[in-house]
Design a protein around this nucleic acid. Structure first.
Lengths: 370, 370
DNA sequence: ACTAGCGATTTGATCGTTCATCAGACAGAC
DNA sequence: GTCTGTCTGATGAACGATCAAATCGCTAGT
């Protein structure tokens, strides 16, 4: 009995013939094994194995009206800013998706509107089942647009400035991150702790600022004149930090809203012959590759992107399966990674401190409030 | 005449009814417009526009036995090494693919073997039409495996160590890059130009070394004792450069095989209170974000990844369409980006030199030899 | 006037899978 | 012994597009 012609892909038909059952039984063996008697099941599975059969996804997609593909935009990672973060996220997303039987269709788009054009195309062609949008920001057109079309999606990032948004999102609690940084600095004996941030109005930046504000208030630390803001950049970070250091009562620690800003801060110290870590502490945010490239190693806050990706996938699939109708709002805790730039400890134990120490390696879920 | 039920996606059928033609004419209007009479065509296109119709990709995929998807692995961009390069490449690949009507399915895989497992899955399911593999290296199992399965693919990277490989590839001429670096340094008056590289046996590393060797030989420059090798890393780059600087006749320029190595070299200079650029020139490779993060800005070699991606797609589609049966071998020239780390010029014109100057911005195609 | 030939359009079949439905076997209850 | 219910497996139809081939209308050649 010829299993199949050489050069031809096995189909459900050829497997059925090989196992002496019908098409549907082969289909059941894969999609609803409990419906098939054990001995039949093993026979069918053996044939499947032997012929190397996998269901043709185009046919399955057509019949089930789903593609098992998730769309995700590749952000323009030109700058170091958050580029590394979103690349890591995409990686984690692909992993998490594949674990659940989905794949990721990635595309590039220079602007939000261009992204919506692509999504519109994919949506009309029913080329993907759902979307993941990342890098949400104030007056973001995407959530509303997607919701209006009834397209299933989950956002990595809160709907900044739209507290009554009804879509699902997963985000990292930036405020908790900066608060943890401040706690760490306080434990190191710092009391004048400055904040170098972005201009007000950026959701992410304001969130990180809020954490600094909350923690300094909790410890009754001085804040007057210790907040400086500017657009992201090394030069900007250096300039802002420079002005802080030139104060009559300069801070002994500088909490930066990003690793890039922190790099600028380190330069400002260098220019004044101040030693980072032992004399003035500097911290960043995002735990980008930058942190291990500078001297001293930069203390930073690491986003649990793997966990974010897993939650995003979980929520998305719940929506697709219909088992969830209400929006999920998930906030995860980031992890503090301490390096020498915030370590006042004596040099003898420097080697030990160099090794990144994650204060909370397994980020716990903060909330899933409705 | 009801165009379509609300909430229902338009199909070729509903468009046909709306335009008072048959299914096939609608199909032809999209896939073979020259077969349709102009007035019919415009009527059909108007209906398509009006109903917002796009062919269901699952149905089209099933019928045409092609998915218009290309598979591409997301490399573990943990380290800064070449991570940035491959992220940029993926971005460019998505762009180039979309311009030609294709999309990219990206997936993560920790090892080559894991990648082959995923590819095997995608292949059996006929979920993608072709693959792009990147980061080729010595004894790479992937090209042979793919070729044996008859899967269409193109590699970004030469088949190192396998001169008689029969698959198509596109790569960047690393030797031309380091040679251009040497030319630039010679023009700046340097004569003792060292090379800090990776251990022999890495295709990419050996290629870049070859360019240095060729160019130094062409100018009859000394090379004795001026080559140091080690695995990639900041510390390694610093150590190797340190030993070079401690020579009786130290080099005045250090050409590094990577930006990471170059960063180490800059540190070695710093530790010896030597000024990079004005006293000792340092250059890297890959034009990663690192180059603009260090002080002084690091001269580097930029790979034309957009051009690489375009050529990869072009070759791939030629293979898919059957218009190409012989393997394509495309080598593109990289571009030198000069920054302060290799600039001996006086400080008055520093501002001008700070602006990156691409010596050959539009990389020309070197060859397409068979 | 008749038909060959060509271009424009339509019709029937097909891609490979899963859904909905139905037939048969087999056990237990009366 | 028959009837009912459950479990297993089989059959026809459908998903929405394109391919192959047939049909129709028209012009031009004889």
């Amino acid at each position: 009995m010829a299993a199949r012609a050489p050069g031809t892909r096995p189909t459900v038909e050829s497997v059925a013939r090989h196992a002496r059952v019908s098409r549907q039984t082969v289909s059941n063996a894969l999609n609803a094994p409990q419906r098939v008697r054990p001995d039949t099941l093993s026979r069918v599975l053996a044939s499947i194995e032997q012929l190397g059969y996998r269901p043709n996804s185009a046919a399955r997609n057509l019949r089930t009206q789903s593609t098992r593909l998730l769309g995700c935009r590749l952000l323009p990672s030109l700058q170091m800013g958050t580029g590394g973060v979103l690349d890591r996220f995409l990686h984690a997303l692909c992993d998490a998706a594949r674990d659940r039987g989905y794949d990721v269709l990635s595309f590039a788009a220079p602007t939000d509107d261009a992204e919506l054009d692509v999504i519109d195309d994919l949506l009309r062609r029913t080329a993907v089942d759902a979307y993941v949008i990342s890098g949400t920001h104030h007056v973001d057109p995407r959530p509303g647009w997607l919701a209006a079309r009834g397209a299933p999606f989950v956002a990595f990032g809160r709907p900044w400035g739209e507290p009554d948004a009804t879509h699902s999102w997963v985000d990292v609690d930036g405020a908790a991150g900066t608060a943890a940084v401040v706690e760490h600095l306080v434990a190191q004996g710092h009391r004048r702790i400055a904040f170098v941030g972005w201009p007000e109005g950026s959701g992410v930046g304001d969130d990180r600022y809020a954490g600094w504000l909350r923690a300094t208030a909790a410890h009754r630390l001085p804040t007057r004149g210790l907040v400086r803001r500017s657009e992201d950049g090394i030069a900007a970070g250096a300039a802002l930090t420079g002005r802080l250091l030139d104060l009559a009562q300069p801070p002994t620690a500088v909490v930066c809203v990003s690793d890039v800003m922190a790099l600028g801060a380190l330069r400002a110290l260098e220019d004044r012959n101040l030693r980072a870590g032992s004399e003035v502490a500097v911290t960043g945010f995002d735990d980008s590759p930058l942190t291990t490239v500078v001297r001293p190693g930069l203390t930073s806050v690491r986003q649990p992107l793997e966990a974010v990706a897993e939650r995003v996938i979980e929520v998305l699939l719940d929506h697709l399966s219909g088992s969830r109708t209400d929006p999920a709002r998930v906030l995860l805790d980031p992890a503090l990674v301490v390096r020498d730039s915030s370590d006042r400890g004596g040099s003898p134990v420097r080697a030990a401190a160099t090794r990144p120490r994650a204060l909370s390696t397994t980020p716990r879920v903060r909330s899933d409030r409705r």
